[in-house]
Amino acid sequence: MNPISSRRALLFGGACFCCLPAHGRAAAAAGPFATEEVAPGIYIRRGVDQEATRPNRDAIANIGFIVGRNAVLVTDSGGSLADGERLRATIRATTDRPIRYVVISHVHPDHSFGAAAFREDAPVFVGHDRLAAALATRGEFYRRRLAALLGAGRAGSVVMPTMEIKGSAEIDLGGRIISLHAHGTAHTDCDLSLFDHQSGLLLPADLLFVRRMPSLDGSLPGWLHELDVLQAIGAARAVPGHGPVAVDWAPAVAPLRRYLTVLRNETEKAVAAGVGIEQAVRTVGRSEAGDWVLFDDYNGWNVTEAYQELEWQ
């Protein structure tokens, strides 16, 4: 078996982690890591463009925190307890303001499993109103896989949201208003985006992938639609869920929209021509191969998801 277990496998179950020995908590201390201050008071750690592995602790998503006058908001918390602990150490090295909010942008483990590191702060855990159901259904599945990959002590546990967002809401960090928006089914069925009014920075989490191959786990037309919803906010800059820590929105979203459009058009064509799903996964989207890191790890999955959605339209 492939010794490098993948995030795709973690999410969707393509590979087996059961053969990897489980270790206890790693000796490596949960010390601070480097972040970039992408706007005043907003610190983001760049996730590596890799699959989840034991050495990288599933620290593959862009995560960080926003500091207001009275409180700190974490978004996202990290890909594992170990990743979350390092984020918490980083926050404590930066500010002594209380960590009042921990956002879980969606159900995927690379964005949700750091949350357990913040339990001692007793924050409000914020998520989409469909997040709890998604975590209840998949959380244990993710936890087992993450534990097999990283060791039980480093994986973390499922943390449920205590503040559920339906539609839109605002959080005040003390002179700093953060808008939250619960999206329709897109990347997943529980995507939450944030907008910081002070800096004008948009934090769409995994609704925006830059250079790293996107994964489709919700709805393809839905995702294209939610990109329009985000566009309408009019933010000039954004923090992608994967990719550089901050980007100009318009040039960053264009390749994602192009890939999703190619995926939609070519899958629709395959469905109409009676090309089976087993063939379509080999042919659809190939023109995009050179433009994305980890293309081959996700494209076949994405085609499978797109196909089974579009064949019913």
Partner: peptide, 29 residues
Amino acid sequence: KASGGCSAPVGEDDAAALAGIGRMKLNLL
């Protein structure tokens, strides 16, 4: 080589999953 196909749930809620239950399509190849 595959795992999780049964324990990994469908990616949508019940209402969405049940929408149009029993609809059928026939494609002649």
